[in-house]
Amino acid sequence: MTPEEIQACLAAKFGDAVGPLQPANKDPWVEVKPAALPEVCAFLKADERLRFDCLMNLSAVDWPKQNQIHVVYHLFSYARRHGFILKAKLDRAAPTIPTVEPVWKSADWLEREQFDLLGVQFEGHPDLRRIMMPDDWVGNPLRKDYAEQPQYHQISTTRESPLDGFIRLDEMKKRAAAKAAEEAAKAAPAPAPAASSAATATGAEAPAPKKELPQ
């Protein structure tokens, strides 16, 4: 089935809880109200025409500008060989959404990952704990405003750059040129004090002809 037909199916069954089809560049998606998500997913899996038997991917995207976190569900049906994308928009301050783990078992680990990295709370998840980061890690690394703690168990999370104090070669040449130009500008007015009034008049152009100085 095409995404349009799938959306029509959902809209007929759930009405307002399912948004219109959004053409986002390549892959069209549909917005679902977070509260209606478990029912919509159960319907998507059970319905004979749709038969979405696999949750392929679950990602969350942090949008501080809109003060939202989007949870994106990529579904696929091995039985019918079609795919579909659901999106749920959550409040950034308290991102909670019902789990879909009872519908698709693969959601277990996929939801844990998003909980860990973006701090999305999946209500009703049987084992919601961090998966990538250590249990006592502070913050959710994939949030856009994530600030790393300076230390983790007395291990510094930053280090001095070994390149500090070194200057790039082209930067060095630029500085040498600037220095030479400055010295030349100082030396130039001394032998010709009479032309000082002319020099001040064309002061802006003065450093320009001295570009041949650096080797």
Partner: peptide, 21 residues
């Protein structure tokens, strides 16, 4: 901003998917 794409390929370990926003 906000354009998104999804790619699926058959890796040696199976269906590998990139979701890019």
């Amino acid at each position: 901003e906000g354009l998104e794409a999804y790619s699926r390929i058959e890796s040696a370990r199976g269906d590998m998917q990139y979701y890019v926003v």
